[in-house]
């Protein structure tokens, strides 16, 4: 099976029904994307498929086809992703960090689709990403900071 991840082609020999997250982490060794709950409820495993933020723990790899996958390792190469990462550093958004790859992926997808999101749009886009440290206030500030950049 051929997968396009962060602009590079990868050939993997996996069953169709393996969750995309397992392929990314266990088969390809790209461990930036995190395993959280495994049931699409926490958002730690968020990646982009054709620019849309999705939970990779619940996406069978066979359904991806030729669509472009972007992970946390490649998000800095996109304009929205680079802005989000810069804002994250400048505002020191992160606390423990485990959920942050997912937070950054959701935030970057939001910013790419909506360059000037208001609070409602931010809440709507980020609601599926949980943070046990409670960095939500800084995440919202970080997204607005990136939007101004």
């Amino acid at each position: 099976m051929d997968l396009k991840i962060n602009g590079a082609n990868h050939q993997v020999d996996v069953p169709d029904d393996m969750p995309l997250l397992w392929v990314i982490r266990d088969v390809l060794g790209m461990t930036g994307t995190k395993f959280g709950c495994g049931i699409a409820q926490c958002g730690a495993c968020t990646v982009h498929v054709d620019g849309i933020a999705i939970r990779s723990c619940q996406l069978p790899v066979g359904t991806v086809g030729g669509r472009a996958i972007t992970t946390i390792e490649g998000i800095g190469d996109t304009s929205a992703g680079a802005k989000i990462q810069k804002a994250w550093i400048e505002l020191e958004v992160i606390q423990c960090g485990y959920c942050q790859p997912g937070q950054i992926m959701s935030a970057a997808a939001l910013l790419a689709a909506n360059p000037q999101p208001d609070d409602d749009a931010i809440d709507a886009a980020m609601a599926g990403n949980l943070c046990r440290c409670g960095t939500y206030v800084r995440i919202r500030e970080g997204i607005k900071h990136a939007a101004r950049a």
Partner: peptide, 12 residues
């Protein structure tokens, strides 16, 4: 919304 999307068309 993570799986079903705001459009209801399914996220992925």
């Amino acid at each position: 919304v993570g799986c079903h999307a705001w459009t209801g068309a399914g996220a992925a």
